[in-house]
Amino acid sequence: MSEELRCSAKGCQESAAWALLWNNPKIHTPERRKTWLACEAHRESLGDFLAARNFLREVEPAAQVDTGS
């Protein structure tokens, strides 16, 4: 059985419900996607952080994303 996905917010130990797919266009190719995982409580704040920098590309349910683990 796979390990439970955890929120990427600093100090948070909650289960991740969302995957925030992002890239930094200054250093990543357009198709590259990095992943931050978010619980329900941190989905908006992590998304806002990435969106303010124009890094946020997509938000998907965490269960649908291959995190490479």
Score class of each variant (00 low, 15 high):
L56V: 01
A41C: 11
S8F: 12
F55W: 04
F49Y: 15
I27K: 13
V59K: 01
C12T: 02
A62R: 02
P25N: 10
R33P: 00
A41M: 11
I27S: 09
S8T: 07
A63F: 07
E31P: 01
T67L: 05
F55E: 05
N24C: 08
N54T: 08
G11S: 05
W18T: 07
K10Y: 11
A52L: 07
A9L: 11
A16V: 04
H42N: 14
L50C: 03
G68Y: 02
N23F: 06
K34S: 14
R43K: 15
K26L: 10
L50D: 00
S2E: 12
T29L: 09
Q64M: 09
S8H: 04
S15T: 12
D48A: 14
T67V: 09
Q64Y: 10
R6I: 15
R43E: 15
L5M: 10
W18S: 11
T35R: 10
A63L: 04
R57Q: 00
K34D: 15
L21S: 03
C7E: 14
A19S: 05
H28C: 08
S15W: 08
A16T: 13
A38V: 10
L37C: 08
S69R: 15
C39R: 11
S69A: 13
P61K: 00
H28A: 00
N54V: 11
K26A: 09
C12N: 02
H28V: 04
C7K: 08
S15C: 09
A9Q: 06
E3Q: 15
G11D: 05
A17V: 12
W18K: 02
L20A: 01
N23T: 06
K34I: 08
K34M: 08
I27T: 14
D48Q: 10
K34L: 10
